[in-house]
Simulated assay, not measured.
Amino acid sequence: MLNLNQKAVNEMKLSFPSYSENERFSRIAVSGFLTQLDPQIDELSEIKTAVSEGVTNCIVHAYRDAVGEIFLQVRIFDKGRVYIKIRDKGCGIDDIQKAMEPLFTTAPEEERAGLGFAVMESFMDKIKVRSQKGKGTTVVMEKTLKTRKAFR
């Protein structure tokens, strides 16, 4: 994991309601912020997909039948290192290991594939999930981009 005591070169923080329409917004906001690194298109697409999965988990699982707040933080460190944190204050996850198994879903009646965490893991260099029942979940993802442009 990144040394978070190191100062970020740039960062953004957002919070928004858990409306399904805001999943698209989060993806666009993160990709727009990261364009300052001039990333490769495939890298940006992977990050957008991972963010989409993380935010969708908040919408579908954390706040199942309610609207809550989703918190998103993106930090850029030197050498193209990117840190993304997605946090909710929803229902939490009973068993994180089980939840991270491919094809596991808490919403089978909604025809969910249960691949959200697997997708995040496949597209990012590192992923860490913390959760507390009744208090919410935090997903931290990291990726080092093959930047073509030095920051500042």
Rank of each mutant, 00 (worst) to 15 (best):
M1T: 11
M1Y: 09
L2K: 10
L2H: 08
L2M: 12
L2S: 04
N5F: 14
Q6G: 07
N10W: 00
E11G: 11
M12G: 10
M12I: 15
F16T: 00
F16W: 00
F16L: 06
S18V: 00
Y19P: 07
Y19E: 15
S20P: 06
S20H: 12
N22F: 14
N22P: 02
E23N: 15
E23T: 15
R24S: 13
F25E: 06
F25N: 07
F25K: 08
I28R: 05
A29S: 04
A29E: 04
V30W: 02
V30N: 02
L34D: 00
T35P: 02
T35L: 14
Q36M: 11
Q36A: 08
Q36I: 15
L37H: 01
L37N: 01
D38Q: 11
P39H: 00
Q40L: 11
Q40I: 10
D42P: 03
E43T: 07
S45M: 11
S45Q: 09
K48Y: 05
T49A: 15
A50F: 05
V55Q: 11
N57Y: 00
N57S: 00
C58V: 01
I59L: 10
I59M: 06
H61T: 12
H61F: 14
A62S: 14
Y63E: 04
D65T: 09
D65E: 14
D65S: 13
E69R: 04
E69I: 09
I70P: 08
F71C: 07
L72F: 05
Q73G: 02
V74M: 09
R75P: 05
I76G: 14
F77D: 01
D78T: 14
D78R: 13
D78L: 06
K79P: 04
K79C: 10
K79Q: 14
G80M: 10
G80C: 06
G80E: 10
R81L: 13
R81M: 11
R81T: 13
V82F: 07
I84Y: 02
I84C: 10
K85V: 15
I86C: 10
R87M: 12
D88W: 00
D88M: 07
I93K: 08
D95L: 14
Q97Y: 09
Q97E: 14
K98F: 13
A99C: 10
A99W: 03
P102F: 03
L103H: 14
L103W: 14
T105F: 04
A107K: 08
A107W: 01
E111M: 06
E111H: 05
E111V: 02
R112Q: 03
A113Y: 08
A113S: 12
G114V: 08
F117A: 05
A118F: 09
E121G: 09
S122W: 01
S122I: 04
F123P: 10
F123R: 15
M124K: 07
M124V: 05
M124L: 11
M124H: 05
D125M: 02
D125L: 09
I127T: 03
K128Q: 12
K128V: 11
V129H: 06
S131E: 04
K133V: 06
K135D: 02
G136Q: 01
T137A: 07
T138Q: 05
V139L: 04
V140S: 12
M141E: 08
E142V: 01
E142H: 01
K143I: 00
A150G: 11
F151D: 08
R152P: 08
R152L: 15
R152D: 09
